[in-house]
Design a protein around this nucleic acid. Structure first.
Length: 488
RNA sequence: GGCGCCGUGGCCAAGUAGUAAGGCAGAGCUCUGCAAAAGCUCCAUUCCCCGGUGCAAAUCCGGGCGGCGCCUCCA
C-alpha cells in the first residue's frame, strides 16, 4: 500500500516517492496579508495541514519540513506597471497605517484564525520582505544566464527562453497571444513575460534598493527564493489554490528551473474552490464568508470538519445549512470520544504504534481502512466515513459492554486518527476550563435535587430543572447508571 | 478565442470498469415517567440525456444539454 498523490504536472495520481531518503520538503503558498481570511483560505490551509499531518503520521522516520510564506509585499492589482495599485499600500492608505503595520496586523489575525481551525503552524514561516536579498540574487542569476532582461528599472523574465514554459497549466504562449486580450502598454518584449523586479515611483512606500534601482520584487520570485533557501533546489510537494496554477506556479517553475537546471517540485497539489450558490467565493467578488464572522456562530472545528467532508480537489458548496448539518454529525463523533475519555480517565494510554499487532485485529482493521482512504490522494471524506462506520460504533459497543481494558487502546486510536491526523478533536474541553470544579459541583447539586424529585415522582420539578439547565447550556442525560451532564 | 473542471437520492458528498461509502434531513422500533443519548430497521434497480466499446460502465469513447474555474490580484 502506497500513498498516491494527484500531481497537477502529470494530471494523474502518482505513487509518492520522496526525493530524499531521510526528509520530506513541503511548501504551501501562504496568504497576502491585506485582509481577513475567509472560508476559501480555510480550505486551502486545512488541505496543507492535512498533508503535513499525514506525512508525519505515515513517515515517522523522515523529517518533514513544512514551509509556508507570508506575502507582505503588496504587488499590483493590475498588470500595468504604471496604473497598478499596490494592495497593501491601498489598504494602508485606507487604514492610515504604514503598509508593514497592515501586514503585521493581518498576519497575526491570519494565524489566530488558523489556530482556531486547529491548523498547525508551519516549521518555517518566512516573510517575503525578509528575503529581498535572496530574491535579488536569484534575479541576478537569471539575468546572467540570459533568462531575464532589464528595461528602465524593471526586470522581466523572458518566457521565450524557457522551452517548457506552460507545462504545469497546459498553456501555450501562442494561444495566449492569439486570445485578443487587451494588453496594457508595457516595456515587456512579449506580453507573456512576467516581472521579476519592479521599479517604483516616488509615492511608493514599500521599496528596496537593487542593482536596477529602487523597487520591489515581482510576485512570483518570493516563493522560488524562499522554497529553495529552506527546502533545497528540488522539493517534494508544493501546494496552493487552483487559481495559482497559472500564472503564479507556472512562473515559479520557469524561474527556478532556469536557474538550477533541476526540477523545482516533484508533486504539485492544487485545491479547488469553495463555492456558494455554485459560484466561486473570492476576495474580489465580495461573496466571501469571513472566518471571524463564522466563528461567532459555529464551532471552528465543526467548520474544519465540514471542509474535510469534501475532497480537496473538488469544489465545496458552502452554505450555513451545510455547516449546521455536518456539525450535527460531528457532535455525534465527539460524544462518542468524550464518553470514552471520561471512562478511561487518567489511565495510561498505550503507544499507538504498539497496537499494530494481531491481538488487536479490530483496531488494525480500522487503522487500515483509515490509511487506505488517506493514501488515496488524501481522501478525507473517506477517512471520516471510517470514523462513522467503525470507530464510533466500536467505541459505543465498548462503553456499553464496560470492557475497560479496551478503553485506553481505543482512546489512543481516537487521539491518533481523529486528533493527530485529522485534527478534529478539541485541544481543550469544558472539564479543563473548569479546573477548580466549581461548575461541576453546582451541576452535581442540581442533579441530586432532580434525582430526589424524580424519586418522589415529581416530574414537573424534574423537568423544570432539566429545562432550565438546558437554557443555561447544560444538557442532562438519564441512563441506567444515573444522570450525566455535558455542555451544549 | 485558448486551457481545464464538474453534473451521483430532499440537501451535502465519496466512488474512475465488477454491480451505488458516509453525513444531514425523514419514517418506524427498542430503551425510557418524559426527553435526550445509544442501538436496530427503512430511505437511489440507479448515477444530466443519447449513442458506442466491454462478459461487465456512474466509471472508458463519441455527441448533446446544463453549470463552473483559469487566461488580470485572489486559497
Amino acid at each position: 500500500m502506497a500513498l498516491e498523490i494527484y500531481n497537477t504536472l502529470s494530471r494523474k495520481k502518482e505513487e509518492f516517492v520522496p526525493v530524499h531518503s531521510d526528509r520530506i520538503g513541503l511548501y504551501v503558498c501562504g496568504p497576502t496579508v491585506y485582509g481577513d481570511a475567509h472560508v476559501g483560505h480555510a480550505k486551502a490551509y486545512i488541505m496543507g495541514d492535512i498533508v503535513n499531518r499525514y506525512l508525519r503520521f505515515r513517515y515517522p522516520e523522515r523529517k518533514v519540513t513544512y514551509v509556508q510564506n507570508i506575502t507582505d509585499v503588496g504587488h499590483m492589482t493590475d498588470n500595468d506597471d504604471v496604473a497598478g495599485e499596490d494592495k497593501l499600500q491601498k489598504q494602508s492608505a485606507k487604514e492610515k497605517k504604514h503598509p508593514m503595520e497592515v501586514a503585521a496586523f493581518y498576519t497575526r489575525r491570519f494565524y489566530e484564525d488558523m489556530s482556531a481551525l486547529n491548523v498547525l503552524r508551519a516549521d518555517i514561516e518566512p516573510l517575503a520582505t525578509g528575503h529581498i536579498t535572496e530574491q535579488i540574487e536569484l534575479i541576478k542569476k537569471l539575468i546572467e544566464k540570459g533568462f531575464a532582461y532589464e528595461v528602465d528599472g524593471n526586470v522581466y523574465f523572458d518566457v521565450s527562453k524557457d522551452h517548457d514554459y506552460g507545462k504545469l497549466s497546459g498553456r501555450k504562449t501562442e494561444d495566449q497571444e492569439a486570445s485578443g486580450r487587451v494588453e496594457a502598454r508595457s516595456d515587456k518584449r512579449s506580453p507573456n513575460d512576467f516581472a521579476l523586479w519592479k521599479r517604483v515611483d516616488a509615492g511608493h512606500i514599500l521599496r528596496w534598493p537593487s542593482p536596477w534601482g529602487d523597487g520591489f520584487p515581482g510576485w512570483h520570485i518570493e516563493c522560488s527564493a524562499m522554497s529553495m533557501k529552506y527546502l533545497g533546489e528540488t522539493i517534494d510537494i508544493h501546494g496552493g489554490g487552483l487559481e495559482n496554477q497559472f500564472p503564479h506556479h507556472e512562473c515559479e517553475i520557469a524561474q527556478s528551473e532556469s536557474v538550477t537546471g533541476k526540477p523545482f517540485v516533484k508533486y504539485w497539489m492544487h485545491n479547488n474552490m469553495v463555492t456558494t450558490g455554485g459560484v466561486k467565493m473570492g476576495k474580489s467578488l465580495g461573496n466571501s464568508a469571513m472566518l471571524r464572522d463564522l466563528f461567532k456562530e459555529y464551532d471552528p472545528l465543526s467548520l474544519r470538519f465540514t471542509l474535510l467532508q469534501s475532497h480537496y480537489r473538488g469544489t465545496t458548496e458552502f452554505t450555513t445549512e451545510a455547516i449546521s448539518a455536518s456539525e450535527t454529525g460531528y457532535k455525534y463523533l465527539l460524544r462518542s470520544y468524550h464518553k470514552l475519555k471520561d471512562v478511561v480517565g487518567d489511565a495510561e494510554l498505550p503507544e499507538f504504534n504498539s497496537l499494530d499487532t494481531p491481538q488487536n485485529q479490530s483496531i488494525r482493521d480500522i487503522v487500515g481502512l483509515f490509511k487506505e482512504a488517506l493514501d488515496d490522494d488524501f481522501n478525507t471524506p473517506g477517512a471520516i466515513a471510517v470514523l462513522f462506520n467503525s470507530l464510533a460504533p466500536m467505541t459505543n459497543n465498548i462503553l456499553a459492554a464496560g470492557m475497560s481494558e479496551a478503553g485506553p487502546k481505543y482512546l489512543a486510536v481516537w487521539n491518533a486518527l481523529a486528533g493527530n491526523v485529522l485534527g478534529i478533536l478539541p485541544t481543550q474541553d469544558a472539564t479543563q476550563t473548569d479546573a477548580s470544579g466549581t461548575l461541576s459541583s453546582v451541576v452535581q447539586l442540581a442533579v441530586r435535587w432532580r434525582k430526589q424529585a424524580r424519586e418522589r415522582r415529581d416530574f414537573a420539578m424534574s423537568d423544570t430543572i432539566r429545562k432550565e439547565l438546558d437554557e443555561a447550556g447544560i444538557i442532562l442525560e438519564d441512563s441506567k447508571e444515573g444522570t450525566t451532564w455535558r455542555m451544549k
